[in-house]
Design a protein around this nucleic acid. Structure first.
Lengths: 339, 339
DNA sequence: TTGTAGGCGTTATCAC
DNA sequence: GTGATAACGCCTACAA
């Protein structure tokens, strides 16, 4: 009823400060946002009141009246896979350039977490970019009208932006390299966990296509699915070599898996690359450090994140990005010693 | 003057929806937040209006009236150093548990970026946790009253929370291991870039102390400072071996540096660990994968992040955490083959 | 230089 | 079940 005092309802408001300093709210505002039209002495007095009351402006009230703060939500699959932090770094950098905030969610590759993250961010952000596995229509429903930019996934819906990797070119370059090195019995270690989402995983598709083009004696049985981790790669490689002992080369979904594959091969007494070549897909720093250094298709992950933010900017400016001009990063074959 | 139409000032408001559906704002609110007291048919009509107008509630207006959403800001030094994503993962997980949002900033170890991040987050978050290098009073000033939890750094100020690593115990365990393996001429590769902040870098201090306790013939000249990266470690190790060719073991600030040190040693034709042992400090997965596998002081990085969020919760609940009960994670010596 | 009035978009409270 | 009305905390006019 008194309606005053900082302790009343949590934090002090601009009103409380005004009262304590014996000025109007407006004057407090001028002092806090240090604007020009205010006497130094008054300013001092106000700022002192601010300090004793522990006053901090409400970001909500401020955001309500100045419509400028932009927040983009970032959804990634696994912060501990070194691939994603690099993408995130690109997103952060690009966002910071524009004065935008970024709130991050990690799905652990789980569709339920993905959807709840989507819902949370739909309330909290002005746009969302991320690695998403659910079908288009599910995504659109959960995003509830918030612009969405898909990473490494194309979509039919014109309402969804997207930024991609030129997987086909990458796979072609990689396979060409392996084949020209004399390999024909090439296996693939495909990353889970979105096997049902064909859109999600072009790597396997292109692998099979290109293998057929080259007339290789491999089919889908040469593709083993595994977790996107070193352990996953290790396990799957072990299975692959059991089922197809004549394998001489392996195409991995990503570098983590490739590293696991190298270990598995060696554990079985196969030299890499002499007995079995291993090809990665990512270009993580990790690949340079192991023995033998990993041959891989290097992706500019930072750039990927930056491009996503640019897409967001386009969409937010009502310039709906046409699917035709979908930005794409092209993998570069980096030949080291594993293949 | 007309004051209506969704196109007026960007987004449609609840008012626009109400008008189109021929109901009051309140009814729209009921429909959107699906509350109980509303006729299905009305709800349908409202929801349709929502869809055609592309209406989305303003998070600011909502946050203003419901005081519940909590956002914590996370400031880390370098997303690309695998150490930080693990800490971040802990923060994200703990925050999600409480229904909090996390906005992330990356400073690249730069003090200017650190301060601007602090200022931004002071407006945007209800609390901040992070790796910070500026002096206490600077931090407090820039945080502008927002609760702050320091990572891996103790502070004198009772107003700053903190979560740490028991560096002393870690260094002791590591040095004991090296000494008991017969090493006496032990160098150290210290991580930049906060040399002036003694609070920031207990590792060097404890290293020197413990070295003296053991009566080792090493002093500050055996400490070389470098970037917290593989390259940094490589370079510094090279310098160290040049100045002190009789070095038989090296204590690294972190695993990335240690990996670089291993490479530098080998490049010089020194076997690891036979000619020169290398000890890391982090416990990154990377360490298991290189050759030889890295002996290191393993830190539970996720836990560190979780503890930080718990500190935030305490502070936000006005239960100021006493410095006495500062949470600390204790490094565990993991002996592999590099030392 | 300072104060007053109004509105930003939403939810809560209370009538109807 | 539905609709006025009053906050929520701040800022941008404009008036004094």
């Amino acid at each position: 009823m008194t309606g005053s005092g900082p302790g009343r309802r949590g934090r002090a408001t601009i009103e409380d400060v005004a009262r304590l300093a014996g000025v109007s709210r407006q004057t407090v505002s001028r002092a806090v946002n240090d604007m020009a039209e205010i006497t130094p002495s008054t300013k001092q007095r106000v700022l002192e009141a601010v300090r004793t009351l522990g006053y901090r402006p409400s970001r909500f009230a401020r955001g309500l009246v100045k419509q400028d703060t932009t927040t983009v939500g970032l959804i990634i699959s696994d912060l501990v896979n070194p691939f994603f932090p690099e993408v995130a770094a690109g997103v952060l950098a690009a966002a910071e350039n524009r004065g935008w905030h970024v709130v991050v969610c990690d799905t652990q590759y789980r569709l339920d977490k993905e959807l709840s993250a989507l819902e949370v961010l739909a309330h909290q952000a002005d746009a969302i970019v991320g690695y998403l596995g659910s079908p288009d229509e599910v995504l659109e429903r959960h995003a509830a009208g918030v612009p969405l930019v898909l990473l490494e996934r194309s979509s039919q819906s014109p309402r969804l932006g997207s930024v991609g990797i030129d997987v086909e070119a990458g796979v072609r370059a990689g396979m060409r390299h392996l084949v020209s090195s004399g390999h024909t019995r090439i296996g693939m270690l495909d990353g889970a966990p979105y096997p049902a989402q064909s859109a999600q995983n072009d790597r396997r598709l292109h692998f099979l296509t290109v293998a057929e083009e080259f007339g290789l004696p491999v089919d889908q049985h040469w593709v083993h699915v595994c977790d996107q981790s070193v352990l996953g790669g290790f396990t799957a490689m072990d299975e692959l070599l059991t089922e197809h002992p004549d394998t001489t080369a392996v195409f991995a979904f990503n570098d983590l898996i490739a590293v696991g594959a190298v270990q598995a091969a060696r554990r079985r007494g196969r030299g890499v690359p002499e007995d079995c070549a291993v090809l990665g897909f990512d270009g993580l720093q990790l690949g340079e450090l192991i023995d033998p250094p990993l041959t891989t298709l290097h992706i500019d992950k930072r750039r990927l994140g930056e491009l996503a933010v640019e897409q967001v900017a386009l969409i937010l400016a009502d310039r709906a990005p046409s699917p035709a001009q979908r930005p794409v990063v092209r993998p570069q074959l980096v030949v080291r010693r594993s293949a």
